[in-house]
Write a protein that binds this DNA or RNA. Structure first.
Length: 583
RNA sequence: GUCCCGAUCGUCUAGCCUGGUCUAGGACACGGCCCUUUCAAGGCCGGAACACGGGUUCGAAUCCCGUUCGGGACACCA
């Protein structure tokens, strides 16, 4: 492949029938990286030839998702990203980038093909086709449509011109088709497996196979990187290209990505997880419907029952979100939007996805494999020959680990900014509940402990204590026993308890000014020295009093985040409850 | 069922093309220890894989064939 003579053009061509799937991110990313690497163009084309399933809102969502990932397209629908940068456009005048707006082109090509008998109208009804399929099935053969030898072309053309509804099929020559794939090598498909597939549907829209070939030609696409599920479509595309005298682009079929259990990653996984959790917890349809009354449109118990019993049924994204929050489960992330909401960083997502099927094959200075890199590195190092052949499983734990280390490596201020951006979109109330200084403290404490941004705001996350009202702190029994009631040796007070130490320390705390993490820590040091106790014995007592558990960030940070009033209130309440329990 | 593709630790993978340096390396996860006011992070250590069978060769994870297993495609969806 000579990189000097050809201007590389790659493309990502989603159909706008939903959100951008995480698997789509990798396909888009590889096409993007390949174009960048060769100083070519990456274009985005919207394949909206399925009139029933395509939607404009879905198109917008996909553009947003791609842009958020940092995958910018040189050509395609115009879009302004979050920092006001324009993406897309049509510098070579090859648009439109919506297939639904290219019908004239497809029809011109179809007419020419019919003229040359490269294509022909067919009038079979769906029922007839179903019967043929059934017949083939019974004969243990795979069904393939071929024009019958008795086909009367003249008559068929007359019927078509008379306006009789029909599809147009490709008159596929019986020839061996060779597919050259940069990942898989040469693959040969025998003539007996070719078929006369449909080029134009009865509704006048092109099929995927036809539109893709025409568009790739007319848009000058040189390299097609796509999922392996398209491998069996490729001989069709190549046969069409040959018949039409088109260039054959370079193909690279990417290995597939599955769930950890080997199942297909699908939107239905969210329904499955929610359904199983409801069943396990014996939550009735009525209770679920009750939880979902706030969803628009409201969902009634009958619908819930159907959803519970029928695996093929799905609840709306909103409904699933509300339900999962109410029953306190985490839904599996499937779409880019899910990962964004969960608080994964776009660069980390790109990094991790790139590793599923591609590997830079380089070492770090310490001898370990180079695995962590940014999009710029990918753009500079991406190559087809390092794409693997084996399917992979999506490992959320590894993604989370990458995200955690990326977060930990960030300066505090940057992390706080990222978290504020996240709040803006997903939970703006946090921004009004915490003043700027407290939010910064919270972020500093959370940063080394969270894997995602959403974890910062989670009541069960490492700084969850800050999101619980003072009166609602639940004191863990075992923690209370261990940190407050168990005897503690003090050189000045003899045998005492955490609770007693806590009472003493609380008054010192009240006198602290300023109430900062550093001041609290040094006051704590002084207290332990004067009382001759270990730091742990008092620190754990405080921790249990203000968080209800023995786990929290550093005690200075923990108290500073809460502020003096909240600390006092929590400590008082704890002491009260403990003494009641003791008495 | 037919066609197509694939096969290295639990998972992602390096190594394979250009056989020996591989008693197979790394990462995530897991277990242990250390550090420590808890948690997280960090440090150290550990268990863990060439699917199987034939060939070629002095020598095979690497090349060839077969078996098995896994996956994909078989629409007027894309």
């Amino acid at each position: 492949m000579s990189s000097t003579s050809t201007h590389v053009v790659t493309r990502f061509a989603p159909s706008p029938t939903g959100h951008l799937h995480i698997g789509g991110v990798r396909t888009a990313l590889f096409n993007w990286a390949f174009a960048r690497k060769h100083a070519g163009s990456f274009l985005l084309r919207i394949e909206d030839t399925d009139q029933a399933r395509s939607s404009e809102s879905s198109t917008r969502g996909i553009l947003e998702d791609l842009a958020w990932c940092g995958i910018d397209w040189d050509e395609g629908p115009e879009f302004i990203d979050e920092i006001g940068r324009p993406i897309g456009g049509d510098p070579r005048s090859v648009g439109s980038f919506f297939q639904s707006k290219r019908l004239d082109l497809y029809n011109r090509v179809i007419d020419e093909m019919i003229e040359r008998d490269l294509a022909y109208p067919a009038f079979d009804t769906p029922d007839q086709l179903a019967a043929l399929r059934k017949e083939a099935d019974a004969g243990k053969q795979s069904f393939r449509y071929k024009r019958s030898p008795s086909y009367d072309r003249t008559k068929a053309l007359e019927r078509m011109r008379a306006g009789e509804p029909c599809v147009v099929r490709f008159h596929n020559p019986d020839k061996v088709v060779r597919v050259v794939d940069e990942v898989l090598g040469d693959i040969h498909f025998q003539p007996e497996h070719t078929d006369d597939f449909v080029l134009r549907k009865a509704d006048g829209f092109p099929t995927y196979h036809f539109a893709v070939v025409v568009d790739d030609q007319h848009m000058g696409v040189t390299h097609i990187l796509r999922g392996q599920e398209h491998l069996n479509n490729t001989p069709r595309h190549v046969a069409l290209q040959i018949a039409l005298g088109y260039r054959t682009p370079v193909f690279a079929h990417l290995p597939l990505i599955f769930n950890a259990d080997g199942s297909k990653m699908s939107k239905r996984d969210k329904d499955k997880a929610a359904r199983e959790a409801c069943n396990k917890a014996l939550i009735s349809a009525e209770m679920i419907a009750e939880m979902l009354t706030i969803v628009e449109p409201p969902i009634v118990a009958d619908e819930v029952r159907q959803w519970q019993s029928d695996k093929r049924r799905g609840l709306s994204a909103d409904a699933l979100r509300v339900l999962s929050a109410r029953i306190n489960i985490t839904l599996p992330e499937i779409d880019v939007e899910d990962f964004r909401r969960a608080g994964y960083l776009p660069d980390v997502i790109c990094n991790y996805m790139a590793l599923l099927g591609w590997n830079p094959g380089q070492k770090n200075p310490d001898g370990t494999d180079l695995e962590k890199f940014d999009p710029a590195f990918l753009a500079a190092n991406f190559s087809l020959d390092r794409i693997g052949k084996t399917n992979s499983r999506f490992d959320r734990a590894k993604l989370a680990s990458f995200n955690q280390s990326a977060i930990a490596a960030m300066p505090d201020a940057e992390f706080a900014e990222r978290f504020r951006d996240w709040c803006d979109v997903y939970d703006p109330s946090i921004l009004s509940r915490f003043d700027a200084a407290r939010l910064d403290l919270l972020c500093t404490a959370a940063k080394p402990r969270v894997k995602t941004l959403s974890e910062v705001a989670s009541p069960v996350g490492p700084v969850g204590f800050a999101f619980i009202p003072d009166h609602a702190v639940a004191f863990d029994h075992a923690a209370v026993d261990k940190a407050l009631k168990k005897p503690v040796d003090s050189t000045t007070h003899g045998v005492t308890t955490g609770a007693a130490l806590l009472r003493d320390f609380a008054s010192e705390l009240a006198a602290l000014d300023p109430f900062t993490a550093e001041a609290i820590e040094s006051s704590l040091k002084a207290f332990t020295e004067s009382h001759g106790v270990k730091v742990g014995s008092i620190a754990q007592a405080i921790r249990v009093a203000v968080t209800g558990s023995t786990v929290s960030p550093g005690i200075g940070q923990t108290l500073a985040i809460l502020g003096l009033d909240s600390c006092k209130s929590r400590i008082d309440r704890c002491l009260r409850e403990v003494s009641v329990a003791v008495a």
